[in-house]
Design a protein around this nucleic acid. Structure first.
Length: 312
DNA sequence: TATGCGTGGCT
DNA sequence: TAGCCAAGCAT
C-alpha cells in the first residue's frame, strides 16, 4: 500500500491535498468573501453571455477595469454578436479600441470573431482547445472564458491568482516573472472537484488578488484567509531574487507606434506620410515604427505615401 | 524562455 | 518624480 502523493511544488509550505481540510477551508472562505465583495461588473451579469465574457477578457489583458468599462459597453452595443464584428473592417475594431493600449488585441479579437463565425456557427466555442485555437486567446483566456462563461472546471491562472497562491500557499511576496510548471501544478491541485465550485473559486481568487491581495499595499486586515496565509505567517518577508522586470516606455518604438496609431484612429480618410512624420522627430525610429505597424496589420499602406487603418 | 507590444493612474 | 503596475499573447 502506498501513501497518497502530491505533485512536488516550489516553496517551503506544502498545501494539503485536494479535498483535505485546508484546501476546502480556503475555498469556502474566499468564495464566501466573494459573495459579499464581488464588484458588479457588466461582464459578470447573467445577460453578458459568452461573447461579453470573451470581449472583456481581451480588453482586460494588461488593462485596468476602470478603463475597460466604457469601451466594453460601446463595443457590445455596436457588436452584440461575433458575426456583427466579423462583418466590419478590422480597422474599425482598432478604432473602437481607442486608447486601451496594445491595439493588436483589437485585431486579434476581430480575427477571433471571424473564426467564430466561420468555424463555430457564430457561437463562442465551449471547448478549451477550440478557444485556445482562436487568435489572441492563450492559456489564461481560454480557461477564463470556459470557466466564467460556461462554468467549466479549469485552473484560471492570471497575475492575481498567481500572487494569491504565491503568498497564501508558497509563502513568498511575488510569483516568478514567468508562469512556471510548479505554479500550474499548484493551481490544479487546489482546484475544487466540482465544476460550479471550481468556477466560483476561479472568479473569487482572482477578485481577492485584485481587491485585497494587491501587488502593493496589500490589505491583509480585510483578507478572508489572512490567518492561513503562509507569507503573512512568515512575517511577510520582502521579495528576494532577480528583480521583477519593469516595462520601459519613454523613447521606445512602442511610444512612437502609439502616436502614429492615435493619428490614424482619429482620421477617417487616408493620411499622408507627411502628417505622420510630425509625431516623432527621429526619422529612423519613426520609419521602423510605421513599418512595424504595417507588418502587424494595424496600418494599411496605400499608393502615393498614404496610410489608413486596415480595410481588410 | 526572453522580449516586444500601449496607455494612464498612482505613489 | 520616475518607476510601478494593470484579468497576457505571440514569437
Amino acid at each position: 500500500m502506498t501513501a497518497p502523493t502530491l505533485p512536488p511544488h516550489s516553496g517551503t509550505t506544502a498545501p494539503d491535498a485536494p479535498g483535505t481540510p485546508l484546501a476546502e477551508t480556503l475555498h469556502s472562505l474566499v468564495i464566501n468573501w466573494f459573495d459579499d465583495n464581488a464588484r458588479d461588473l457588466p461582464w459578470r451579469r447573467p445577460d453578458a453571455g459568452a461573447w461579453g465574457v470573451m470581449v472583456s477578457e481581451f480588453m482586460l489583458q494588461q488593462t485596468p477595469v476602470s478603463r475597460v468599462l466604457p469601451v466594453y459597453e460601446q463595443w457590445l452595443k455596436r457588436w452584440p454578436r461575433p458575426a456583427d464584428l466579423a462583418k466590419e473592417a478590422p480597422g474599425e475594431a482598432v478604432r473602437a479600441w481607442g486608447r486601451l493600449g496594445y491595439p493588436r488585441r483589437a485585431l486579434r479579437l476581430h480575427g477571433a470573431a471571424v473564426a467564430i463565425t466561420e468555424r463555430h456557427g457564430g457561437d463562442v466555442p465551449t471547448e478549451h482547445a477550440q478557444l485556445l485555437a482562436l487568435p489572441g486567446i492563450g492559456e489564461y483566456t481560454a480557461a477564463a472564458v470556459a470557466s466564467f462563461a460556461y462554468g467549466q472546471r479549469h485552473a484560471v491562472l492570471d497575475t492575481n491568482v498567481r500572487r494569491v497562491l504565491a503568498r497564501a500557499v508558497t509563502g513568498v511576496q511575488y510569483p516568478p516573472n514567468a508562469t512556471t510548471a510548479a505554479e500550474r501544478r499548484l493551481a490544479r491541485t487546489l482546484l475544487p472537484e466540482d465544476a460550479p465550485t471550481a468556477a466560483r473559486w476561479a472568479a473569487a481568487s482572482m477578485e481577492l488578488g485584485a481587491l485585497v491581495c494587491t501587488a502593493k499595499n496589500e490589505a491583509c486586515h480585510r483578507c478572508p484567509i489572512a490567518e492561513h496565509c503562509a507569507w503573512r505567517l512568515a512575517g511577510k518577508p520582502e521579495h528576494d531574487g532577480p528583480p521583477r522586470r519593469g516595462q520601459t516606455y519613454a523613447g521606445t518604438d512602442r511610444q512612437v507606434r502609439g502616436k502614429l496609431l492615435a493619428v490614424l484612429r482619429k482620421a477617417h480618410a487616408p493620411v499622408p506620410q507627411a502628417v505622420l512624420d510630425r509625431v516623432w522627430h527621429e526619422p529612423v525610429q519613426r520609419a521602423r515604427a510605421l513599418d512595424g505597424l504595417v507588418a502587424d496589420g494595424l496600418v494599411e499602406p496605400l499608393p502615393g505615401g498614404m496610410y489608413r487603418l486596415p480595410l481588410t
